[in-house]
């Protein structure tokens, strides 16, 4: 028992070390990639005013943004030092707001919207897939996979626009935009929570709908494979209740690939909801990312990529932890 524990801990620590290394590489790329883009924040900002500013403004902007001609390695060292102190710098596009403040506002809403959507899509999709495989050629198995694959073939933002048009604009069932009603004060009141839920139905719903097919097919196909294994036949031959065979023998084993996928999806929550957020004017991180790239806002891009990196690595480590629980082979 103790040796298994030690083995699990060793496995998780090794993974942690690997993620640490990957994180460092990502941090360096976060620094490099924005700077490889042509132009710099001051000239881009100047150009955005389309002739309303005097050319001299560029010098003032460079001064304000703290842009220097210092060599790249020096800037890199400064970046690492600031980062180690939790200082992400000041955003250029939202100057002079600190990056942490800009991201902080949006992060919560994106995590809420896309997080709920991914968990729902994964749970529903895997559940339906498991059911469909168990009752093979049943009604569910015949209808759900082709229908959901069909829906999943549409780009998710297209579904979002269609839903916004039909249910938001034409029928007026759901609000067209924002995360809650403009007149409400945020707080744990029923009015506010219900407003948040009704505002999330269309954006989260379309994301779930678009992703459901993938989860369902993956789960169903792995299940079909697992159900053909000898140990299932053995379990059934032993006369175990079929519910137990389904859940503990088939589903638990078939879950593994889907779980890895879930980790990836969870990690990409922060970047994945981008277009949905724009369609529904949801105050999340997606619009920030676009704006940061357009404005060549190095600090904001670095900050956003950092949150995405941390989310991807963190989610993968969580999946590793779950794998340790679910798959005994990793413990030896």
């Amino acid at each position: 028992m103790i040796s298994t524990l030690r083995a699990s801990a060793g496995f998780l620590l090794r993974r942690l070390g690997f993620y640490g290394l990957a994180g460092f590489v990502a941090l360096t790329l976060n620094f490099l990639i924005p700077r490889l883009m042509p132009g710099d924040p001051a000239t881009v900002m100047f150009a955005r005013f389309q002739g309303e500013l005097e050319p001299e403004a560029i010098d003032a902007l460079r001064e304000a943004f703290g842009l220097t001609d210092a060599p790249m390695w020096e800037q890199y060292l400064q970046y690492l030092t600031a980062l180690s102190q939790g200082d992400l710098g000041l955003s250029v596009a939202y100057f002079p707001a600190p990056v942490t403040e800009v991201i902080g506002v949006a992060l919560l809403w994106t995590v809420l919207l896309a997080g709920v959507a991914v968990v729902l899509a994964f749970g529903l999709g895997s559940g339906l897939g498991a059911l469909a495989a168990w009752r093979r050629n049943g009604l569910l198995d015949q209808i759900a996979p082709p229908l959901l694959s069909f829906l999943g073939a549409f780009p998710y933002f297209w579904l979002a626009m269609a839903a916004a048009w039909i249910f938001g604009f034409q029928l007026g069932w759901f609000p067209l935009r924002h995360a809650y009603d403009a007149g409400l004060d945020p707080g744990l009141t029923w009015a506010f929570v219900s407003s948040v839920i009704s505002h999330a139905v269309l954006p989260a719903g379309t994301m779930v709908l678009a992703a459901l097919g993938g989860w369902l097919l993956a789960m169903r196909n792995t299940m079909v494979g697992v159900l053909g294994e000898d140990f299932i036949t053995y379990a059934q031959a032993r006369g175990l209740p079929s519910r137990r065979v389904w859940l503990h023998y088939a589903v638990r084993n078939a879950m593994m690939p889907n779980l890895t996928g879930f980790g990836m999806a969870l990690g990409f929550v922060l970047s994945g909801a981008l277009l949905t957020e724009i369609v529904f004017a949801y105050p999340g991180q997606g619009y920030l990312l676009i704006n940061a790239v357009l404005a060549q806002d190095y600090p904001l891009m670095q900050g956003l990529f950092l949150t995405i990196t941390i989310a991807v690595l963190g989610a993968n480590w969580l999946v590793d932890c779950m794998t340790v629980v679910l798959d005994p082979r990793t413990r030896t």
Partner: peptide
């Protein structure tokens, strides 16, 4: 997509 509270009349950069 979201507002940042900034009423500094000198930040011309659209901030």
């Amino acid at each position: 997509a979201s507002w940042i509270r900034n009423f500094n009349p000198f930040s011309v950069a659209g901030g």
